[in-house]
Design a binder for these strands. Structure first.
Length: 578
RNA sequence: GGCCCCGUCGUCUAGCCUGGUCUAGGACACCACCCUUUCACGGUGGGGACAUGGGUUCGAAUCCCAUCGGGGUCACCA
């Protein structure tokens, strides 16, 4: 590694799935490193022993990999298909999981204590909470009061001995009394006045470092040159700068990115899913008085007392929220990358949209429009700190959906069919089996035709199931929409119905059962019956085949159904509506 | 409340640094029309913003100040 090489890092704490905001941070860090010809690092900040888990760390890495955000340095990840990420990571003492680096932090802590820049403190957290509460009640800003026996720059042997003898303690920083300037690459110079910092904790009673301390040590020891993170960390940065000075470390370049919010300006959080599910549950109960939490729980396959508690707002169980969403047929708001993936978004649309949330290439297309559509290589080649905005932004799912729709539309029919099927096999196995069966060439040919017919009508893979509905039910497994029947079959003295009856033999005798000939046959039929256009027969046919007057073009629809199903459905419709 | 950050269409933004070319451009959404066998796709057009008030200047979305508004942060979470 040369001394000028840029090193950025994304450092999630493994306490859940990868949040969409975290994905944006990772994307910007990745893009900047690539742009500068440097390295992008992934570090796992698992110093909160109670909340961290290895499954979560693995999940976050898989989500990053799925998005195409690959790290040069960090844990090794082996993916199905032989893909490996982090295979050429730099070998760093202690590795990339903070929990396994505790001896390193302890070494640095001791150095700080010996030089009089840190000291053990013995107050319990209840005691401090009480002090904080009292200060808040008195409308005072609480700052930890430095004990009288602490002198900056002087080693306190007394306290160190007590700590060494095993007395419960934390280690606190001797915060400097001076102005601290952070030269932020996004926000410009940010200053905080002397005395704003108090003696914050560096090492917790359980022996793990706090976030502040671990971050400062790791960024130095791992050679991080640029710290790009969300603006919520801005207020922490002076602490980090002060610590770096006390430890004799470099100060990396900082850049704080704007925050991402919901449409209602609230912070995007996984609790939003619980909120949406709860609202849906409540409105279901209100609309249908025969329902109760018990019957709902039964339908959801969940414990009724838990469901009742969930509705009452006593818990925000993600499991119950997911079950409620599935049971009531509503889509919960996507918050985590895994949610978008499950709902059928593609990585290229997500990363493109995310890149535009807080950054802009500032380039016009030849026809004078802002350049908005670009891929990962473009980002890697053009990303710049200067063009990161300062203002917080609202996450607009509707625009993301539009990007996703465009991404799907840009695929060839074969590509779309492949992606759609892969998604379906994971998230909708029943539908996958129904539409593609064993994946034999004959089945795939028909499936690809369906995929092509549905592609322009879908915003996501999940959404593509909607226009494919006619192919997902049995020939007698759908109902005829009364309004559609009335309008297209019964109106005008049953004209639609008699046309449909007359069409049947024409279709039954059609030899070449493929889109072109089928469409030609229907057109010929319309001409022979003096219809102004084929709508007069097309709409009744649609009602017969799908139950509603909406379907993809008829040539495709009939081909996908096959001749036998088509005739069976017409017969059933004639019998039912005639 | 203290400290810090931010303020262009409903939303994401271009323009701001280097005042005039801005009767403020684009995208998503919305509306209308066209295309069309339906639903979509596509095409054309439309409504829609410089938070407010003061300065500076011949001239301010662009520079300065104030006000108002929004956000972040004040843990032995990260």
């Amino acid at each position: 590694m040369s001394s000028t090489e840029v090193v950025t890092r994304f450092a999630p704490s493994p306490t859940g799935h990868l949040h969409i905001g975290g994905a944006r941070s990772a994307l910007f860090c990745w893009a900047y490193a690539k742009r500068m010809g440097g390295r992008f690092m992934l570090r796992i900040e698992d110093t909160d022993a109670a909340r961290s888990s290895d499954e979560s760390a693995r999940g976050i890495m898989e989500d990053l990999a799925w998005l195409g955000i690959e790290w040069d340095d960090g844990p090794r990840l082996d993916l199905p298909g032989g893909r490996v990420i982090g295979a050429h990571a730099r070998d760093i003492e202690g590795g990339y999981f903070q929990a396994r680096r505790v001896n390193i932090y302890n070494r640095e802590i001791e150095r700080l204590v010996q030089s009089g820049h840190a000291y053990p403190a013995f107050e319990g957290s209840e005691e401090l909470d009480a002090q904080r509460k009292a200060a808040t009640a008195a409308k005072q800003t609480y700052r930890y009061p430095r004990p009288a026996d602490i002198t900056p720059g002087v080693f306190n042997a007394d306290r160190w001995d007590r700590a060494q003898r095993g007395e419960a303690h934390v280690v606190r920083f001797v915060a400097p009394h001076e102005e601290i300037l952070v030269a932020d690459r996004v926000l410009g110079d940010v200053r905080i006045a002397p005395g704003e910092l108090d003696d914050f904790v560096l090492r917790k009673a359980d022996g793990f470092p706090t976030y502040h301390f671990a971050v400062v040590c790791d960024d130095e020891l791992m050679g991080v040159t640029h710290v790009l993170r969300a603006q919520e960390h801005l207020a922490n940065t002076p602490r980090h700068v002060a610590l770096q000075r006390a430890l004799g470390f470099r100060t990396p370049e900082y850049g704080h990115m704007p925050l991402i919010f919901n449409l209602d300006k609230s912070k995007m959080s996984k609790r939003d899913k619980a909120k949406a599910a709860r609202a849906a549950l409540k409105s279901a109960l209100q609309k249908d008085p025969s329902l109760s939490p018990v019957t709902l729980a039964a339908g959801m396959g969940a414990d009724s007392s838990q469901v009742a508690a969930f509705i009452a707002g006593e818990n925000d169980s993600l499991d119950i929220a997911a079950r409620a969403g599935a049971y009531l047929g509503i889509t919960l708001p996507e918050i985590e990358v895994a949610d978008f993936r499950a709902n059928g978004y593609v990585p290229s649309a997500i990363t493109n949209y995310l890149a535009l949330l807080g950054w802009n290439p500032g380039v016009k297309t030849p026809d004078g429009k802002d350049l908005e559509k670009f891929d990962m290589p473009y980002l890697a080649a053009h990303f710049s700190l200067e063009r990161i905005g300062k203002t917080n932004s609202v996450f607009d799912r509707v625009k993301l959906a539009s990007f996703n729709q465009d991404a799907l539309a840009a695929m060839s029919d074969a590509e779309f069919a492949q992606g759609w099927l892969a998604w379906m096999r994971t998230y909708r196995p029943q539908e996958a089996a129904r539409l593609a069966g064993d994946g034999s060439p004959a089945r795939m040919e028909r499936f690809t035709l369906l995929a092509g017919a549905v592609k322009a009508r879908a915003k996501t893979y999940a959404d593509a199931l909607r226009p494919a509905g006619f192919a997902l039910c049995d020939d007698d497994g759908y109902t005829f929409d009364p309004a559609a029947v009335k309008k297209n079959l019964h109106a005008d003295d049953g004209k639609g119905l008699s046309l449909l009856r007359a069409l049947r033999p024409a279709l039954a005798t059609l030899e070449d059962w493929s889109p072109g000939p089928i469409h030609a046959a229907i057109e010929a039929f319309a001409g022979a019956h003096a219809l102004p256009n084929i709508g007069g027969i097309a709409q009744p046919l649609r009602v017969a085949l799908a139950g509603v007057a909406v379907s993809p073009p008829l040539g495709e629809t009939l081909t996908i159904l096959g001749k036998d199903s088509t005739l069976a459905r017409i017969d059933r419709c004639l019998a039912s509506a005639g």
